[in-house]
Amino acid sequence: MSEFVKNIIRFTLFILVQVFVLFQVKPLHQFIVPYLYFLYILWLPFNTPRLGLTFTGFVFGLTLDYFTQTPGLHAAACTLIAYVRPFLVNILISQAGADQNYKSPSVTSMGLAPYATYVVILTLLHHTYLVFLEWLEFGSFLYFFGKVLGTTGISLLLIVVTELLFFRKQKFRTNTV
């Protein structure tokens, strides 16, 4: 299956799972909202052009927004992490040329520690911006902080589970054809 078709299927699945499974979970605590959908942006291939990445983030966020009736909220957060992603990848990739030898960011392509850093930073960034926008009108700092941390914790847990359940095979591609 081509990478493009695969990503379109992923797009649909992430949106549906977020809207019809995770948003339906009964609220456990006021700080906790299970978010997983943005993992789609983290999984996009290395060779996506930067412009395409930002645009995909925008469209992806907006799609979710039309299910939650909050046009622009998730779109803004997704655009931000999609824009920041290439900078992080450049800093964190340890082996030279890993972004050419592998298709997309994962534990095998980037190594455990860099990949974990990559996920944690982008998750934190996404949630901080999202909660910040939600709480722009009035905010108690403690609540803002608690919600960012609580939501990030749950998201990271969900990401670990997803990574373990849906292991993505990464073929080593050499550029010496």
Binding site: T54, T70, L73, A75, A76, Y83
Partner: peptide, 20 residues
């Protein structure tokens, strides 16, 4: 261009959000 596009996307998103 990349940065400008990012700013444009953000502005559109925030515009949607606050006008809504």
């Amino acid at each position: 261009f990349n940065f400008l596009f990012f700013v444009l996307a953000q502005v559109i998103a925030l515009l949607f959000l606050f006008r809504y």
